[in-house]
Amino acid sequence: MSQPVIALFTDFGVSDPYVGQMHARLVAEAPQARIVDLHHYAPAFSPGPAGLLLEALVPHLTPGSVVVGVVDPGVGTARGSLALATDEHWFVGPDNGLFASVLEAREGRCFRLREPEGDGLSVSFHGRDLFGPAAAALARGDRMVLGEEVAEPVRAEARRDAVLYVDHYGNLMTGLVPPEDGGARLRVEGRNIPFARTFGEVGPGELFWYRNSLDRVEIAAREGSAAKRLGAGTGTAVAWIGGV
């Protein structure tokens, strides 16, 4: 039997203790699993945009992976929990629209999670105390953590024509899928941005957009920061010039 993979996708960042606590709990609950830090800088407090970013990452997951998604501004409230089963993966997290884009892109079934008994569920850290243990159980092949089936999981608003993520280089990843011909121009913060296939096709400091490794439109400045050049960040709108 292959080693199960549990992938973490959160808005925690890595400078605080939250990711470490998640790892510690998962190691205790599923010592045979390999834990992958898929991403910890998802758009904070924004399940919809974070879900678009997660959906772009899914094709690169190992089949059979269990994804723990935690972008959860409603933690501790009456918002529900969710386990989404697709043909190849499990997704475990809050029912707040985080998995809506994944579910739109592929068929799946949704379930509530059974909450643990006793006083072990923190009102502020369901990632560690609810979603993590449930993911570990699913990685072990244990389905007892699943409750009733959910016919209509929560949907969240998310714009593909906007910046989803800014990396440490200052590159701007959007939710747009690039056109096949690649020749269109983008309009961002009043600037027209041309297409280039690679960084080497433009001069130092020049702005361009390209098809990134996740098959999404990304805006960059060669050897510079597109975010600083454009004054852009997460949520900045982008538009095709003349439509695509």
Rank of each mutant, 00 (worst) to 15 (best):
V5W: 09
V5D: 11
A7N: 11
L8I: 13
V14E: 14
V14H: 14
D16I: 01
P17V: 04
Y18R: 12
V19N: 07
G20W: 10
Q21L: 15
M22I: 13
A24M: 13
R25V: 15
A33E: 10
V36L: 15
D37M: 08
Y41I: 01
P43A: 05
S46A: 15
P47W: 03
P47I: 01
P47H: 00
L52Y: 02
L53K: 12
L54C: 08
L54M: 10
T62V: 15
V66Q: 06
V66A: 05
V68F: 00
V70L: 01
V70S: 01
T77P: 12
R79T: 12
A85R: 15
E88I: 00
W90R: 09
V92M: 11
V92F: 09
G93I: 08
P94C: 04
D95R: 01
D95C: 04
A100V: 07
S101P: 05
S101M: 06
L103T: 01
R106Y: 03
E107T: 13
R109T: 14
F111R: 11
L113P: 07
L113A: 07
G118K: 06
R128I: 00
F131A: 09
A135I: 04
A136N: 03
L138H: 00
D142V: 05
A151S: 12
R155M: 07
A162W: 08
V166Y: 04
Y169E: 03
G170P: 04
M173A: 15
G175P: 07
G175W: 05
L176M: 13
L176N: 05
P179R: 03
P179A: 09
P179M: 04
G183H: 10
A184K: 09
A184G: 10
N192I: 14
F195V: 08
A196V: 11
F199E: 04
G203C: 13
G205C: 12
F208W: 05
W209T: 12
Y210C: 04
R211F: 05
I219D: 00
A220E: 04
L230Y: 06
L230I: 00
G233C: 02
T234Y: 07
T236Q: 10
V238D: 07
A239G: 00
G242Y: 06
